[in-house]
Structure formats: structure tokens, C-alpha cells
């Protein structure tokens, strides 16, 4: 199938062209780049929301409920749900759809599950490009549900415009542990399973952390409470997502955020291409093998060799 056919398919909201293109991206097929080039000018409409938090916090259930709420408000929504790939076998069990069964058959919702395939930041390599595809496909909102995160899986902030950090009460002192990395990226804090003991304490701890952070010129992250399984607090969460987007737009921060994300994107592409080139020059040419011997014999050193290889790119 030719590239233009995929592009037209996606722009005409053909589900199969869209899902097939995401596969091409995941498989690093050379066609994917050409399709993405063609789609690029049709992107930028969608709002990109990250849902992140520890495993078992209820990210999938929450996403399901939030998306249903947005559907009642008449929006088209895409969901990219990421689960970990086994570092041993390369296999994965992607189970986020279990919580989104009814959304499956809603023609206004596109759900795609992805394995991390070796990426460590809570996303997969293909996530960003898949977002572009769903944007061009015509989604008004795109939700990215990260893998269950620990302390430092913060890549979502380089991609999403609004990050919802989902937490649960009763993790006790664990809250201390995650204060440094992940706690810093929430635009909205959501205490899910808020009927459990410890919700008040968690809210106070987050509030204190925000106080310590000091001054918020445009947006102080709100601390919300939900019980996603019964739909409690969902509509307020959706309102806050919209408020955050509005605040980004009005303050000019949206442009800034997007510019930053574009820089990261270009850097990532460059790094990918450079890695490939380095691989070609160093390994496929046999140069690396040749120099490794010389390094071992102390005829030269790894730094000089790296400079030589770099100069050949």
C-alpha cells in the first residue's frame, strides 16, 4: 500500500489505516517516516493529556471514566495505553483495555495499547509519533496512560501538555520516596480511591510540598479526589483539565511548552539517526573491532578512537 493512501486514510478517519500506521511506527518501518511527514501539517489540534502514577493507582479506570465524560461532552478521543515490555523475552501483556471495555465499540474513541519495548521513561519510542497520527486522525483529546511509574519516569512531561498525577492513599512513607522526581511533574494531582484511609493526610502532604515550591504565577496544581470505579469526582477532574489548558493558552505557556517539546522531538530524531550512523561507521565497517585490539594493546585509548570514529560520520 502506498504512503499517500495511508495519509488519506488517516485524514478521512479510517481506523485501519490509522492502526496500521501506528504498527509501522512501532516496527520502525521506513514508510512510517514518510507518512508522518505527510501528516505533520495536519497535527496540532488535539490536546495531549498524560495520565501517570504508580502501578495500581487506577490509571486505566480513571482514563476510562474521564474519556466517557468527554464523550458526553461531544469530543473525539484517542487513548494510548502503555504497559511494560519484558526485558528478558521482549514480550508484554498489555492489559489496559480490560478497564475500557465499553469504549472499545464507541466509534468516537480510538484505543491503542503499546509495550515499552526497551524504553525506560514510562513511554515507548513510538508514543510521540502515535500521538501525531491520532491528532491527524481528528481526536480532540489524546490521553497517554504511562506504565505504572516509580520515581523517575517523567518522560510524559516532554510530550503531554497537561499531566495528571494519579495517587492513592495509604502508601504511607512511600510518599516521601516519590517526592523528588515524579511529584514535580503533576499539573493536576488526583487522589484516586479517595474513600480509603489516608486521603486527607496525602492531600495535606501534597499541599505542603506545593507550598514549599513557593510561587505559582499562572497555575497552582489543584489536588482533586476521585473514586474512579464509581465515577465520583470525574466531572470535576475533566473541568480542571480544561482549566489547565485554558491557563496554558492565556499565559502563553502552551506555545512555550510546545516549542520545548518540539526541540526534544527533533533532538530525539537526531539521536536516533546518529546512533544508526555511528553503528554503521563503527561496527559494520569493522572499525570498532580493529581499534578495540589497539586499545587493548594500549596503542591508543577509547577517547581518541571515539574522536576518530566521530570524524568519519
Amino acid at each position: 500500500m502506498d504512503i499517500q493512501k495511508y495519509i488519506d486514510g488517516i485524514l478521512n478517519r479510517d481506523v485501519r489505516s490509522t492502526s496500521r500506521t501506528i504498527s509501522l511506527i512501532e516496527n520502525q518501518d521506513s514508510m512510517a517516516v514518510e507518512i508522518l511527514k505527510g501528516l505533520y501539517k495536519h497535527t496540532g489540534h488535539a490536546r495531549i493529556i498524560g495520565i501517570t502514577g504508580p502501578p495500581g493507582a487506577g490509571k486505566s479506570t480513571l482514563t476510562d471514566k474521564v474519556v466517557k465524560e468527554l464523550r458526553t461532552r461531544g469530543f473525539r478521543v484517542g487513548i494510548i495505553a502503555i504497559d511494560p515490555t519484558s526485558p528478558f523475552t521482549g514480550g508484554a501483556i498489555l492489559g489496559d483495555r480490560i478497564r475500557m471495555q465499553e469504549l472499545s465499540v464507541d466509534p468516537g474513541v480510538f484505543i491503542r495499547s503499546m509495550g515499552t519495548r526497551g524504553q525506560l521513561g514510562g513511554l515507548s519510542k513510538a508514543t510521540l509519533s502515535a500521538v501525531k497520527v491520532l491528532d491527524a486522525y481528528g481526536c480532540d483529546y489524546i490521553f497517554i496512560e504511562t506504565v505504572g511509574v516509580g520515581q523517575s519516569e517523567v518522560d510524559i512531561m516532554k510530550l503531554a501538555e497537561t499531566v495528571v498525577l494519579v495517587m492513592i492513599p495509604g502508601m504511607g512513607d512511600d510518599i516521601q520516596a516519590i517526592k523528588a522526581g515524579i511529584m514535580e511533574i503533576g499539573d493536576i494531582f488526583d487522589i484516586n480511591k479517595c474513600d480509603r484511609d489516608g486521603a486527607d493526610r496525602l492531600a495535606i502532604e501534597i499541599e505542603m510540598m506545593l507550598d514549599l515550591k513557593g510561587h505559582f504565577e499562572f497555575w497552582r496544581p489543584p489536588i482533586l479526589r476521585t473514586q474512579a470505579s464509581i465515577g465520583k469526582g470525574i466531572s470535576e477532574l475533566v473541568d480542571n483539565i480544561d482549566n489547565h489548558i485554558k491557563s496554558l493558552e492565556e499565559s502563553g505557556l502552551l506555545r512555550e511548552r510546545r516549542l520545548n517539546n518540539i526541540k526534544v522531538e527533533v533532538e530525539n530524531i537526531l539521536m536516533g539517526e546518529l546512533t544508526k550512523k555511528v553503528h554503521q561507521v563503527a561496527k559494520e565497517s569493522g572499525l570498532l573491532d580493529e581499534y578495540a585490539n589497539k586499545i587493548l594493546e594500549k596503542e591508543t585509548d577509547p577517547f581518541t578512537v571515539s574522536e576518530i570514529i566521530l570524524s568519519k560520520i
Binding site: 492502526s19 508484554a92 501483556i93 498489555l94 483495555r97 472499545s104 491503542r112
Partner: peptide
């Protein structure tokens, strides 16, 4: 393999939609 698991009690329509979206 990358396994997409969708849980119990699926309708044929849900299964087919998942087959297509997940490619």
C-alpha cells in the same frame, strides 16, 4: 509476543473493534 488482554465477557463487536484498533 505482545499480548493484548481484554478480560472477561467480551461481545464479538468489542473483540473485532480491538482487533482493528490494535492491528
Amino acid at each position: 509476543f505482545e499480548v493484548i488482554y481484554t478480560g472477561l465477557r467480551q461481545t464479538p463487536e468489542q473483540i473485532v473493534a480491538a482487533v482493528i484498533q490494535e492491528d
